[in-house]
């Protein structure tokens, strides 16, 4: 692996660049779920990628799992630091690409994202790891340092809790696929 990675041309390893292209959307979305606003998420992503690069040759297994573990640690540090600072109000979710405005169900999806952000920290970490980075249960367990059974149970709890919060907030959200099927 080292030889392959050492065959880099330019300042960044090609394989690392490929990793960044592939994993950075999921990592950014995970960071958003963890820290709650886009500016902080982008900063966090950049620091995470730099730290991942610094250890690139030593990483074995899924680099995304490593990067996510770094992200979790940094987000916890950030959360502790935030307790000592004034709270800033997030404005960014409405400032995202205008393309989102064209989606019919953006409001429903936004509701799902918002309830995900209200989950307890550990449940958010596991949801992000499993479904935004698409890591397996063993990879998630390794990245977060918990047993596989914990990953499974927290995943189920998180989804149940999201469902309960959605129903409490807005009532049941309709299923988009069912709508389309019904229209046929």
């Amino acid at each position: 692996m080292s030889n392959d990675r050492a065959a880099a041309s330019g300042p960044l390893d090609r394989e690392f660049e490929r990793f960044v292209r592939q994993a950075s959307p999921g990592l950014l979305q995970s960071a958003y779920v963890l820290v709650g606003n886009l500016n902080d998420a982008e900063d966090l992503l950049q620091v995470v990628l730099l730290r991942t690069l610094a250890r690139w040759e030593a990483i074995e297994g899924a680099p995304a799992a490593y990067a996510f573990a770094v992200m979790v640690n940094l987000s916890r540090d950030r959360r502790r630091a935030r307790r000592r600072r004034p709270v800033t109000i997030s404005q960014d979710y409405t400032q995202e690409p205008a393309i989102a405005d064209e989606i019919d169900r953006v409001l429903e999806r936004d509701a799902i994202v918002r309830v995900a952000r209200r989950l307890p920290r550990r449940q958010r970490e596991i949801l992000a790891c499993r479904f935004l980075l698409e890591l397996s249960v063993p990879e998630t367990a390794t990245a977060l340092g918990v047993p596989e059974g914990t990953v499974k149970s927290y995943t189920a709890r998180a989804l149940n809790r999201m469902r309960a919060m959605l129903e409490a907030d807005h009532g049941a959200v309709p299923n988009p696929e069912q709508k389309v099927a019904d229209a046929q």
Partner: peptide, 24 residues
Amino acid sequence: ELIEGLRVGLAPLQPRGDLLDRLR
């Protein structure tokens, strides 16, 4: 459906185009 809603809801969040340049 919840997972898909979460993924699609967050899909507009994409890294900046100059991310690699900033890393370099």
